[in-house]
Amino acid sequence: MEEVESKPVKRRTKDLNLWEKIYIPEIIKGLALTFRNIFRPKFTMEYPEVKFEPPASYRGRPVLVQEESGVERCVACGLCSRVCPALAIEVQAAETELEKERFPEKFEINMIRCIFCGFCEEVCPEEAIVMSKDYELAFFNREDALYGKDKLLVPASELEDRIKFLRQYK
């Protein structure tokens, strides 16, 4: 309640004094304000030269985490594919001699379908698929929009702050 009372009282036309009613001094005040703004620093980021560096909470394109040994973390459980509301992810599992026993033979994200909701990342038990900071996604045809393992695998070192962010907030 106190906050409401401390608000400045709304002034109506009848409350204004003559100086304010003349209107022109007030216009000059407004003009001075806009004129000062001409010389203030600009907020525009000139894109192709200056690029936006997103924070860790940014949801760019989803990528697969690649361990230092060159193997992906993914065990091809298919949860991401199930949870994906846009049906953008296709996983085909296969067996492997490694400790994890299963690996994705084919992992394909259709970037035309992807809506960047981050459900795949949220549902993943292995922290194997995370959202990156990559926002430059343009293709010239539909075939280029199918991102296979070659494009999806990103070394874990490049995704450190996102993984840290997930451990803290997920």
Binding site: T34, F35, N37, I38, R40, P41, K42, F43, T44, E46
Partner: peptide, 10 residues
Amino acid sequence: RVSAWIQNRL
């Protein structure tokens, strides 16, 4: 240009 400058744009 002028409108952009006044609005702190380029």
